[in-house]
């Protein structure tokens, strides 16, 4: 059982790599803690109006690691990746 499902997960991961990532922010949840901006300043910016702006909604695959870190470390869990 384990082996099969692990194959499935790997497959899923491979399949993901050819699709495009899209950043989805739930602005009702976002409280502009700006941790995403520190991790990926090329993707996120909190401006002086204290609102978050997404600078690049569809980043390349090379930004997946940084984006996943943003998702994990957002204190409000306001960031998601749509594929």
């Amino acid at each position: 059982m384990f082996a099969l499902s692990h194959v499935a997960r790997r497959h899923c991961h491979l399949a993901r790599k050819v699709t495009h990532m899209k950043i989805v922010v739930d602005y009702d949840l976002c409280e502009s803690n700006a941790i995403c901006m520190q991790i990926a300043p090329d993707l996120f910016e909190v401006r002086d109006d204290d609102f978050l702006y997404v600078l690049n909604e569809e980043p390349g695959e090379d930004r997946r690691g940084a984006l996943e870190e943003c998702v994990q470390r957002c204190p409000k869990q306001a960031i998601a990746i749509a594929e």
Partner: peptide, 12 residues
């Protein structure tokens, strides 16, 4: 205090 952008930039 209500300065998230600055905190993160100085954190860097």
């Amino acid at each position: 205090f209500n300065r998230p952008r600055h905190v993160m930039q100085y954190k860097t």
